[in-house]
Design a protein around this nucleic acid. Structure first.
Lengths: 220, 220
DNA sequence: TATAAAAGTTAGATATATCTAACAATTTTA
DNA sequence: TAAAATTGTTAGATATATCTAACTTTTATA
């Protein structure tokens, strides 16, 4: 099986590729930066991951995940997001307090445990942050995720994730009554500064472009 | 905090002391045997645990837990047993299938997680094997645990644990309809071979001394 | 295109937790 | 009580995952 360190590298490679849309691969320094490790450490581990055929990598070249590497990365993400969902839905943790615990839980090695947890949570498709949870076959529901700022007047959507972790931002989100899965209606936009009129839970608000850029939604 | 290895040593020391009733302390080889490690490995770790003041230990002497060592050992046992309870009660695992997974989960480091899990499970006092779960203050419900074979006719008790892991035995236990917390009534005993007449769930059975020696109960 | 900057690698050290082989102390027993 | 058996320790090796310092290759730029 895979060590915790190995799983962290696989997950990091998968995430960087997604976030940066980095098709051609990831660099050693970039990965080191992301994992908060030094480049030689990463270089070292890369050799190991290569002999295990989890990554494609040549000296001085870019790093990509192999098929088996990607499959396991997706499984680690599945574990992480299922545990986050458990922590929030069942243990009443606040959704912004679960990440660190899930970082530990995601390395527990028991496929049966994960399948049963999935069932116990009623096969959720999204975690408390609105990120999709890969299913048992590794399939990830993509949907048409957009930023709230991209929507036109008249559009309806549901909040699936936020892209800002600051307390100020999260407090504001809460104050507006926004939660995961909240229905948001775009009433109007202001051309001048791209601020937006939205309706949430019957309440009407005007929010800035800065704000709508940090809200990820799924069109209804 | 404590590493997984350290937690395993602490737990082992606590368990050996309990099981063997070993008041004066544990030997290096004994501990090595229990943990399935070599004596030098244990010797090495002991030095480390001593500098951390988790054990009392002098060269060639017996090993005992310090107060802080014992406190943490109890906490690890609390974590382990709460997770086992979760796996059985919530995820429908069979009670003899949860140990290995709990061995992993017990090392997750988050006191808040454990407190919330405890609450979620409604503050259980016993795990699925009938072993007591230390409470948040480290207090362990002792009760008057006995073997079923020690009881006299007329006595009533509840099953808290079994001392045999064989399939044959467990199948028999199931066939009798015995579960954790089952009420058992001792009707009669046969002097000749110490077999016992018991009533479980309205059903009457005659069981051998060999059997009643493997059933731990708590008097009602 | 030559040089400077950035990115990547190698070599060697450290910490943890384990091992085997050899040796030392303690305990048992003949 | 001396020899044998058991128990415990030391020394040195291995594997994993990390680091720093020094060096090399690639890329950017003047």
């Amino acid at each position: 099986m895979y060590t915790q360190a190995e799983e962290n590298y696989l997950k990091a490679l998968f995430s960087i590729t997604l976030e940066v849309g980095n098709e051609e691969g990831v660099g050693t320094n970039e990965l080191a930066d992301y994992l908060k490790l030094t480049p030689p450490t990463v270089n070292n581990m890369l050799k190991k991951l290569k002999t295990k055929e989890l990554v494609n990598y040549e000296k001085y070249g870019k790093i990509t995940l192999s098929d088996s590497g990607r499959a396991h990365a997706v499984y680690v993400i599945r574990k992480h997001r299922l545990w986050e969902t458990f922590l929030c839905k069942k243990l009443d943790f606040n959704w912004n307090a679960v990440h660190e615990i899930a970082e530990q839980l995601e390395h527990i090695d028991s496929p049966e445990l994960i399948d049963r947890l999935d069932k116990f949570l009623d096969y959720p498709s999204f975690d408390p942050h609105g990120d999709p949870i890969p299913d048992a076959k590794g399939k990830i529901k993509t949907g048409s995720r957009k930023l709230l700022s991209e929507l036109k007047p008249g559009a309806q959507c549901r909040l699936v994730a936020v892209k800002d972790d600051s307390t100020a931002f999260l407090d504001y989100v809460n104050r507006l009554g926004l939660k995961i899965n909240s229905l948001i209606e775009v009433v109007d936009t202001v051309d001048y500064d791209h601020s937006m009129h939205i309706v949430v839970d019957g309440g009407s608000h005007t929010v800035s472009k800065k704000f709508t850029d940090s809200i990820q939604v799924l069109a209804v």
